[in-house]
Computed example of a mutant assay.
Amino acid sequence: MKKLLVLGILFIYFTNSFAQEERKIPFSTAISAHIVKYNQKIDAAYKDNDLERAESLFDSLVRNHLSGTYMDNFSVYPLKGDPIALEDYEKPIFLITYASWCVPGIGEIPALNDLVDRFHDQIDFVVLFWDNKEKLKQKSKEYSENIKLVHIDEKTNQDSYIINKLKHALGFPMMYFMDENKKILDIRKIVTHHSSETLSNSYNIHFNSLSKGVSLLIADLDLNANSDLSTEDTKIINTSNDSGDRRTDEERRIDEEYEKYRKERDSINNRRKDN
């Protein structure tokens, strides 16, 4: 009887351990399992010119099937030095996939550069170009030196299975937000706007869009840091914030800037309607 009990306990232990391991699903596996059905639905939405439905399908795919998966390891190529494996980045990663033929909004790169210069000590900002080295060189002068600019030639890369998924499944430009263990917290599209938008407005639009990804990564860092605090430390943190607002100062500032931008945008729209 005792032997059976011991065997039962061991069985439950190993079953639970295996189940926990199984939950660490690679991104490539998850996207492969769902991309065909997603493409069928999104093609139908675009055929009906239902852009709202298309956005909803993308959000649902990310939220229900891709968030919480782990990015596969693959190698990227900087302008100088040896190839770098994704697993070698030790900080949370803000990854943008791009290509030289994509035309960014006029304020996109300046907004990204400002955020990178402010947060590169806490986050690895990686801009991945689906291009060769020469084309990356042409673009490199536009970006902050604190951005890790890398490229991949799909035809020659040995990790073609994941490269194919990253480049073709969801398209690009695209933003991937990962914690230090390469767990995907979210995936978002780069915001777009009309080409006639002013530099100031374009900067504000992109800053507020990009900063939401930064806030997500910083909040995850803070959450992990707070989980290591003692119970007494946690009580002190909670009681010091009577309003229930648990945002960091930086998150609060970003939200305030976004609210300011939103009010300015609404004011401009109202003036246009009046005219």
Score class of each variant (00 low, 15 high):
residue 223 L to S: 06
residue 259 E to M: 11
residue 38 Y to H: 13
residue 100 S to R: 10
residue 129 F to A: 07
residue 158 Q to N: 15
residue 16 N to F: 14
residue 160 S to P: 00
residue 49 N to Y: 11
residue 109 I to K: 00
residue 232 E to N: 07
residue 122 Q to I: 00
residue 51 L to A: 10
residue 231 T to G: 03
residue 140 S to D: 08
residue 134 E to D: 09
residue 55 E to C: 05
residue 250 E to H: 04
residue 22 E to F: 12
residue 191 V to D: 05
residue 173 P to W: 06
residue 64 N to C: 05
residue 230 S to K: 03
residue 197 E to A: 14
residue 225 A to G: 06
residue 27 F to E: 04
residue 51 L to T: 13
residue 2 K to S: 13
residue 261 Y to P: 00
residue 107 G to D: 11
residue 232 E to K: 12
residue 124 D to F: 02
residue 146 N to M: 04
residue 124 D to H: 05
residue 230 S to T: 15
residue 178 M to I: 10
residue 72 D to A: 03
residue 49 N to A: 15
residue 110 P to A: 03
residue 223 L to P: 00
residue 225 A to F: 13
residue 88 D to W: 01
residue 31 I to G: 05
residue 166 L to Q: 04
residue 189 K to F: 05
residue 123 I to F: 02
residue 12 I to P: 04
residue 205 I to C: 01
residue 133 K to P: 01
residue 161 Y to Q: 12
residue 219 A to Y: 01
residue 157 N to R: 06
residue 176 Y to K: 09
residue 265 R to S: 11
residue 73 N to Q: 09
residue 74 F to Q: 02
residue 152 I to C: 03
residue 118 R to L: 04
residue 122 Q to S: 13
residue 152 I to P: 02
residue 27 F to Y: 15
residue 163 I to E: 12
residue 52 E to C: 07
residue 178 M to E: 08
residue 34 H to F: 07
residue 202 S to T: 09
residue 162 I to G: 05
residue 259 E to T: 14
residue 94 F to H: 06
residue 83 P to Q: 00
residue 44 A to T: 13
residue 60 S to Q: 14
residue 124 D to R: 01
residue 62 V to Q: 09
residue 106 I to Q: 07
residue 202 S to R: 05
residue 8 G to N: 13
residue 249 D to K: 11
residue 214 V to D: 02
residue 233 D to A: 14
residue 28 S to R: 05
residue 123 I to Q: 01
residue 239 T to I: 11
residue 16 N to V: 14
residue 207 F to V: 03
residue 135 K to T: 02
residue 230 S to L: 06
residue 233 D to S: 10
residue 157 N to Q: 08
residue 70 Y to L: 09
residue 60 S to M: 14
residue 253 R to C: 06
residue 239 T to A: 08
residue 5 L to H: 03
residue 38 Y to M: 07
residue 96 I to Y: 00
residue 47 K to R: 14
residue 7 L to V: 02
residue 170 L to A: 02
residue 144 S to F: 00
residue 238 N to V: 15
residue 232 E to P: 01
residue 35 I to D: 07
residue 99 A to G: 12
residue 32 S to D: 15
residue 44 A to I: 04
residue 204 N to S: 14
residue 50 D to R: 10
residue 149 L to Q: 08
residue 42 I to S: 06
residue 18 F to E: 10
residue 251 E to F: 01
residue 246 R to L: 15
residue 8 G to H: 07
residue 125 F to A: 03
residue 11 F to Q: 01
residue 33 A to S: 15
residue 255 D to Y: 10
residue 199 L to D: 09
residue 267 S to W: 10
residue 238 N to C: 11
residue 32 S to W: 06
residue 91 K to Q: 08
residue 60 S to H: 13
residue 225 A to D: 14
residue 162 I to R: 04
residue 77 Y to C: 08
residue 62 V to M: 13
residue 222 D to K: 13
residue 101 W to R: 03
residue 16 N to A: 15
residue 47 K to W: 08
residue 114 D to Y: 00
residue 46 Y to S: 11
residue 162 I to Y: 06
residue 182 K to C: 09
residue 262 R to K: 06
residue 206 H to T: 09
residue 65 H to T: 09
residue 78 P to R: 00
